[in-house]
Design a protein around this nucleic acid. Structure first.
Lengths: 189, 189
DNA sequence: TAGCGACATGTCAACAGTGGAATGTAGGAT
DNA sequence: ATCCTACATTCCACTGTTGACATGTCGCTA
């Protein structure tokens, strides 16, 4: 139930409407905690019911600006300092497939890993330019957004290096026992 | 909907009952794709309805052993070779908090990152001994389980190094502007 | 032979997340 | 004056995930 804390965290920085928050989820938080409209508006309602946020202003078009309350701040700080974040990468489709690599032809398995290395490399290329953009943002986001960005960079590099290494491992395995390919492949039909 | 493919992948290696599969999810797949009883039995039923698996034998206690069908194999191979895995780490509570580190006192922020470094280190210590265990398993798992394990090791090391670095970055930030701590902390009442 | 633990499946309620549709308003440009 | 775009919220149906509960059987051992 961390969407709740994501919203509290955002409102802790400054009051905002659901619409504003949604934009943030679409940009800076998109990669760490995506959320949809339906989720955000619903959770804001629940948060208000619980007294953790309150409507601080109403604007045109029915706009409701929410601000965090004292209780909300306390909850936010408690979450940040007293509880451990859950496991990082609960599910990974990418790794799931690795377990089944023995069921396709070795060249296909190698291609898969090569592709993962490429994806890592691409991600680095996409993230790297953001570094300068983040540098110029308002102070908190500049400092902490940079930390998150760096995590992404390191992660992608690790992914790429691992995939490259893994591909070589499979190569070695092929040389060890050449004739062990599983049946040819789904027939064209 | 990758639980479906996880089951196909497992049944692609050898026929098994829901109970058997559940044990696998509890062990080797626990870290890449956890699943509960309810999910596994329900999905097996759906898979059978779709003709991707079939009951290959019935045992004592109502045991139903499922085997993958030709259609299932085709679907498995298609998934493995023709489709890209979804994004690796969709949500990360750990990184979400990083964005809000400016809202707690700098020492608390540093403590958080130090803790993340520790968790990475602990995870390495827990995973490293498994290397030898995996080495001794049946062939496919030995090769591919090792790849997955190595990913975990590299990931944890990356996490630890990043957190250590990030902590130093915050330290630098503190020195730059000393008096910027947000209000004291939730008061003890 | 009684009982226990492992085997084995099935069902249910609740919640989180996804995607889309419906509805309407304000403000700026033509 | 009109129209378009961005603003802004609400509702809904569907799927995936969790955890708990219910139910029953087999095989070993005390």
């Amino acid at each position: 139930m961390s969407l709740r804390h994501a919203l509290l965290g955002l409102l802790g920085q400054s009051p905002a409407s659901g619409y504003d928050l949604l934009k943030t989820f679409g940009i800076s938080l998109a990669n760490v905690w995506p959320a949809t409209q339906s989720q955000v508006y619903a959770e804001l309602g629940r948060l208000a019911d619980a007294g953790l946020v309150e409507v601080s202003a109403e604007g045109p078009r029915g706009r409701k600006e929410y601000a965090i309350t004292e209780a909300g701040l306390a909850e936010l700080r408690h979450w940040m300092t007293e509880t451990d974040p859950g496991p990082i990468a609960r599910r990974s489709e990418m790794l799931l497939r690795v377990f089944f690599l023995g069921q396709i032809r070795p060249e296909q398995a190698r291609a898969y890993l090569r592709r993962q290395a490429e994806l890592g490399e691409e991600r680095i290329k996409k993230l790297a330019p953001l570094k300068e953009v983040v540098e110029k943002m308002d102070d908190d986001l500049s400092v902490y957004g940079r930390l998150a960005l760096d995590w992404g960079l390191r992660f992608s590099a690790m992914q790429r290096d691992w995939a490259l290494w893994a591909e070589k491992e499979i190569e070695k395995e092929i040389e060890k026992k050449p004739g062990s390919a599983p049946e040819p492949e789904a027939r064209p039909e």
